[in-house]
Amino acid sequence: MEIDRDTLLKLYTTMVTIRNFEERGIPETGQRGMSASLHSSAGQEAVPTGMCAHLTDDDYLASTHRGHGHCIAKGVDPKLMMAELFGRTTGSNKGKGGSMHIADMSKGMLGTNGVVAASIPLAVGAALTSKLKGLGRVAVAFFGDGGANQGVLHESMNLASVWKLPVIFLCENNQYAESTSVEYALSTAHVADRAAGYNMPGIHVDGMDVFAVYDAAEQAVARARAGEGPTLLECLTYRFYGHTVFDNPLNYRTKEEEDYWRGRDPIKLFREAVIPQGDITAEELDQIDREAEQLMEEAIKFADESPLPEPQELYEDVYVSYPTEALKRGASMEV
């Protein structure tokens, strides 16, 4: 693994930006009474960070309900994300989607998605666009260990393999689907084992180690860009919090287990690996931490100062063309 200094700093910046977004954005959204459907990815930062380091804005990413980190790693502006969580018109989705639907087509971000595994074939379709138009782009379908058991993943892996599409099926195995453990729900030792059924490489790596993810993702992206077809990449990781903000994970996992994985915090592992090499100092990384904290304060301020939608916006963007009157006919609306 030879990673240049700039890339190292970028990896670290992405991880701490994600961590700060989760640690600040989620409680702030809750305090504003905007949503109960918030899923923190704190602990999982190394996965989208290592993956997206190999992507450009032109490449595609289809995400999950736990997708804030995917958005940030793909380049979506945290200010627009914060405004979206706060339900503001300046949000990435004009306040129409919230946490589980954040999209930014200008960054190839095809949306976080509230239905487990539903976004996977969208990435397959984006990869088809790339192949048919000769764009050389790759598409990444993120899913979790829960999504690994959805039929649409298996159909999508088969289709992508048959059509040799530039797709990376990226499983963030955080070991729990809501409260159900992979030991119970997964028929194989690794999600990656399932790649054999679809004639594609199946790789599993330590998802707390951003360098392991970075290296594996590099190979998968190279294979996709070379027209050699899809890869299934499984990253073993851990979410530091519950399924949602209301879930107490100690109802289904032990304090000892949490402590073990907190001890493998990907940000901490990064610092422990990089600082002793001497090229990057602790002070530099501390400064990045402070900048990420400052960025969140700015994002929160931006979101708070942004306007709320007008009630009539309820009817906007359902269709490109459809009579607005037909959206409310017979509904006895007040707006």
Partner: peptide, 28 residues
């Protein structure tokens, strides 16, 4: 066969892919 694509029996995957391709510049 690049514009007229016979599919495996996988409606969720290919209809989802048609939606994903439509969202990224094809008319599907």
């Amino acid at each position: 066969n690049q514009r007229v694509l016979d599919t495996p029996l996988s409606e969720a995957a290919f209809i989802g892919a048609a939606i994903g391709a439509a969202s990224t510049g094809m008319r599907t």
